[in-house]
Write a protein that binds this DNA or RNA. Structure first.
Lengths: 328, 328
DNA sequence: TTTTTATGTGTAACCGGTTACATGTTCGTT
DNA sequence: AACGAACATGTAACCGGTTACACATAAAAA
């Protein structure tokens, strides 16, 4: 690999001049510029990003910390983010936290040591205090942390209400809810949205709420228990699509037909919804847009454009599949 | 952020000494070491990874280039790789190539500029010549490029044969194949494996082979055409699980029951197989192991342990789900 | 006692860029 | 003719580490 010195020598100029043409700043005579460009071409010179980082204290790299990339929501997010970064000559570092605070913090340390320019994080454990202490541009995604931390998310509470309203509208008389982990803010919001819609219904029963922990198999098990005890449930609002898959599985196994016997609606709008049969009706988040916006917001912050701690809230939208059916 | 100079001053020693205790090499008096450690503690000093990289010409970072992280095979791979890296204090950069040679090459350039220590790549387009020219430790995953390039993959040909053999064994009389993209080596191998098992069968028909391009919806469409024309097909070997999902979708839509009317087997063994109903029978690759091995191999290469261009080949194993049924 | 050898520490060069500052031209103005 | 602004380029310090080398001292060997 040739260095800037080699180029300087080849073009018979100083390294400063080469640096100037490289970065297109300062005065450079047109002829000199051409000479340098020719030398760069000849030597197939590529500037050393690490040396540049050391001086500039920035690496053109951002990190994405998610609980687990295997959860199908996150690859879609990651893809959107990477697209934006790629278009802006940034690079994406991927981290799996398993929701462990220790891992998150360890990643944070490493990122600071590597001059990573910013972080997009999906977390339920990190505190605003810790984050501010680290003083690195950050955007929380999917799960707002605090109004002092920029975030990109959807209105889970409203979305959940709409989902339940839809089930009601198509004629469901007894609606159950599979909620996500207690510690996860969006699962909580969705749960609250469900509650606000059903807690005053005469049929409402605490037992209609089960916890699927954002896990398919766990959901399937819990759903079987639920449905065998309460055979008259005719609608289920799953806290996310992944768990809706679990419900689908349980129902199929029990010979309960979806949507004929039971209407099912999920939340998120992951691609998987369209691939199952029946296709899952869901309250869809604009996932790609979410990732895209988070990335753009972060880049703006890094480049000093965005100043106010933006709290972007997107709307979810009902995406009707085949798992819900108008009953009457 | 404090630097090594701050620590040196705090401990009243030279930066060289601090560096020595940091890296645990060279002679350092026990008392001096303690003094330095105390200073490090006091200042909460973390060495600057970029400065270190510049000198050492290595970044403790490796890149993973996949066609698209949204394809559910890759998050599982990525997770395995990241686990290994994390345990070895390496960081993972994620790149989506969309199978475009241009993007792959662009990533390569960036990686070299950033002193990325190695690359794990899933590609069908890059040539051994190009790769060797770049002279960076590399492991090709899932799709061997050439025997001069270390790779980690499964025996797709054998696996495909076994899959078809299984369909035969359970009594399928007419077996179709949904193949993957023509340009992708593993899709080709699987196709050949299928052919070797069926081309001599009296029932064999060229029309039993359709192309799903590793795409669900495309597969579903093609499958509907296939099945409406050839109603006596009673077994389908899908080139991967993702396409098997497409077959499942098509069959459901057409009222063809799986496995009662049609047995379906996929390839890969992604987690999704267990989440559908019916669960998909598949020739499972040891996905996690694949990623793990690729990462370990690459780290060995980077640290100069592995020298011979290893071509690791893993075995696939039949994982019986609910999409295949013994017919007689 | 002298010579090695092992131990301990500091100075400064180096990794490959960027940029502040100095220096020197060339113009346009007055 | 004199002077300031714009243009052009080079020198060297700097970013924050690592390490070769020099030097000093203590312990071991001759």
């Amino acid at each position: 690999m040739s260095t800037i010195k080699d180029v300087a020598k080849e073009a018979s100029v100083s390294v400063a001049t080469v640096s100037r043409v490289l970065n297109n700043n300062g005065y450079v005579n047109e002829d000199t510029r051409k000479k340098v460009l020719k030398a760069i071409e000849k030597l197939d010179y590529k500037p050393n990003a690490v040396a540049r980082s050391l001086f500039k204290k920035q690496s053109k790299t951002i990190a994405l910390i998610v609980p687990d990339i295997k959860n199908p929501f996150f690859p879609e997010i990651a893809r959107a983010i990477e697209d934006v970064l790629n278009n802006n000559d940034y690079t994406l570092i991927l981290c799996n936290s398993d929701e462990h605070e220790d891992k998150e913090k360890k990643y944070f340390d490493v990122m600071k040591q590597k001059y990573v320019d910013g972080v997009i994080i999906v977390t339920s454990t990190l505190t605003p205090k810790y984050i501010e202490k680290n003083n690195i541009p950050i955007v929380s995604l999917d799960r707002p942390i605090h109004n002092s931390i920029p975030s990109v998310a959807v209105n889970n509470y409203e979305g959940a209400k709409e989902a339940v309203q839809y089930l009601k509208a198509i004629g469901c008389k007894k609606i159950a809810h599979v909620r996500g982990p207690v510690s996860v803010i969006n699962a909580d919001e969705r749960y609250k949205g469900y509650l606000s819609e059903v807690s005053n219904e005469p049929w409402f029963n605490e037992e209609f709420i089960i916890n699927g922990n954002y896990n398919v198999l766990e959901t399937a098990k819990a759903t079987m228990v639920l449905l065998s005890k309460h055979r008259d449930i005719d609608g289920i609002f799953a806290g996310n699509d992944y768990m809706a898959l679990g419900v689908l599985k349980a129902a199929t196994q029990m010979g309960i037909r979806i949507p004929q016997d039971l209407s099912l609606i999920g939340f998120d709008g992951i691609q998987l919804c369209e691939l199952t049969s029946p296709e899952i009706t869901t309250m869809a988040q604009p996932i790609y847009e979410l990732g895209e916006s988070a990335a753009k917001l972060l880049l703006d912050m890094i480049e000093g454009k965005a100043v106010n701690p933006a709290q972007q809230e997107f709307k979810v939208s009902l995406k009707i599949g085949q798992s819900t059916k108008v009953l009457r």
